[in-house]
Design a protein around this nucleic acid. Structure first.
Length: 271
DNA sequence: AGAGGTACCTGGCAGC
DNA sequence: TGCTGCCAGGTACCTC
């Protein structure tokens, strides 16, 4: 479920409830996420005052006067503002309770998400330190991607999904951006011209931007912090549409596997 | 250094 | 209805 637009939608949804608040408590029901929630986190964060909720790649950073909570939604996680009266479900692993009485509840069936804590600058955290530029930053340009791809034989789709190259581009949007840029997903990254990289970067930005505007993509189980689905799914041009006609040329869209990830493309438009 | 594969975990679905 | 096998939006970490 959560790619960058879904994480950003989540951030925007819960930021008002989580910014500039006193944290009453952190209630951990199941600490065994991708990495265990540190035992001391509940003690550390209790009574802290939050300043902002930021995003870096697909990580959410809850900054406080004591340190920063680093949260990730994994493949199936969600953070919602919930009614404190509502009984927690099987996969509701932690709650953040703030002084307004609001409860922010983390649900994650697959438990690939995480909740960590750092008292250092989170940018220096091992999980964040090697991340490439944000897709919307001005350092992510066609020229940058072109240079980062010289003599690389890796498929451009894998290059786009490599977080050291550019942060936060996941499978759905890599497929969509490559279709929009008319670049074949399996093409060697090192064999793409600077002009085509310019176009690709532009398409990565625009598809992410449009999806954020629509509140993300709901495939099976992404709902925003208010419980409403994202509305970008009908706008996906190739993802999940194998066998359907290409929206541009009518050729039959194909599915293949690149780097163990489902890949969708038009065999005629994309070269 | 780069490429490729594995692991983490549950739920939904197709096929039998 | 019930079982089995496969697939899934992420990404760190291992080996070759």
């Amino acid at each position: 479920m959560p790619e960058l637009p879904e994480v950003e939608t989540t951030r925007r949804g819960i930021a008002p409830a989580l910014s500039g608040r006193l944290i009453d408590s952190l209630l951990v029901r199941n600490s065994s996420l991708r990495w265990p929630i540190p035992d001391e986190l509940a003690t550390q964060i209790r009574g802290a005052t939050t300043s902002s909720l930021d995003r870096r790649a697909k990580y959410l950073l809850l900054r406080t006067n004591r340190g920063t909570a680093i949260m990730h939604l994994g493949m199936s996680g969600s953070l919602r503002i919930c009614d404190p009266e509502v009984e927690p479900g099987r996969h509701d692993h932690y709650d953040i309770l703030v002084d307004t009485g609001a409860v922010i509840r983390f649900n994650d069936p697959r438990r690939f998400g995480c909740l960590l804590w750092t008292t250092e600058d989170p940018a220096h955290h091992p999980l964040l330190i090697d991340l490439g530029p944000e897709p919307f930053s001005k350092t992510f340009t066609g020229t940058y991607l072109y240079h980062a791809s010289r003599s690389r034989s890796v498929a451009i789709k894998q290059q786009l999904m490599n977080s050291r190259i550019v942060a936060g581009v996941g499978n759905i949007y890599a497929n969509e951006a490559l279709f929009r840029a008319r670049i074949h997903p399996a093409r060697a990254a090192g064999r793409i011209s600077r002009q085509r990289m310019d176009l690709l970067v532009e398409q990565v930005r625009s598809v992410l931007e449009e999806s954020i505007r629509a509140g993300g993509t709901t495939l099976r189980d992404f709902y925003g912090t208010d419980g409403r689905p994202g509305y970008f799914r009908p706008k996906l041009l190739v993802y999940g549409r194998e066998g359907a006609p290409c929206p541009a040329c009518g050729a039959e869209l194909r599915q293949s596997t690149i780097g163990q990830r489902s890949t969708f493309y038009c065999p005629r438009c994309q070269r």
